Computed example of a mutant assay.
Amino acid sequence: MRLAIAYDVNDDTDRRRVYRTLERYGAWRQYSVFEVDVSKSERVELEDELESHIEPVDGDRIRIYRLCQSCQDNTTDIGSDPPDEKSNVL
C-alpha cells in the first residue's frame, strides 16, 4: 500500500530519527513529507518505530494517509523539484 506521511517533530535528534526511519521505507517528497510503499505488516512495524521516536507531550505528531490508486493517479506536482536529499538532515 502507498502511504503519504507528514511529520512535525520539535527535537532535532528525534526529527533525524523519524527522517532516517522513513528514508528506509520510501521517498522524501517535501520537507517533512514522505511517500512509502509498504505491506500491512511493514506498516505496523513502521508505525511502532515512528511512535518510539516522538514525544507527543512536546507537540510532536505524525500523520499517515493511505493513497488509493485513484489518488496516486490524480497527484499533481506544481513548482520546483523536491528538496535536495541532504538539505533537511540536521
Rank of each mutant, 00 (worst) to 15 (best):
R2D: 13
L3K: 15
A4F: 09
A6V: 09
A6F: 03
Y7E: 10
Y7N: 10
Y7C: 11
D8S: 07
V9Y: 00
N10M: 06
T13Y: 15
D14S: 14
D14G: 02
R15I: 04
R15K: 12
R16I: 04
R17L: 02
R17E: 05
V18K: 03
Y19N: 05
Y19P: 04
R20I: 03
L22A: 11
L22G: 13
E23P: 01
Y25R: 08
A27E: 04
A27V: 09
A27P: 00
W28S: 07
R29H: 05
Q30M: 12
S32P: 03
F34N: 03
E35R: 04
V36C: 08
K40D: 15
K40R: 11
E42D: 12
E42W: 06
R43D: 07
R43W: 15
V44F: 04
V44K: 09
V44H: 14
E45C: 12
E45T: 15
L46Q: 05
L46D: 04
L46V: 14
E49A: 07
L50F: 13
E51V: 01
H53V: 00
H53I: 00
I54T: 08
I54P: 01
V57F: 05
G59Y: 00
D60M: 02
D60L: 07
R61K: 13
I62E: 15
I62S: 15
I62D: 14
R63S: 15
I64A: 13
I64S: 15
Y65A: 13
Y65G: 07
R66V: 14
R66Q: 14
R66G: 07
R66M: 10
L67Y: 11
C68T: 06
Q69L: 09
S70Y: 00
S70V: 01
C71M: 02
Q72N: 08
N74S: 11
N74P: 01
T75F: 03
T75C: 10
T76D: 02
I78T: 10
I78F: 07
G79Y: 00
S80P: 14
D81I: 06
P82V: 03
P83Y: 12
E85M: 00
K86N: 14
K86H: 11
N88E: 11
N88P: 03
N88I: 02
N88M: 06
V89G: 03
V89Q: 14
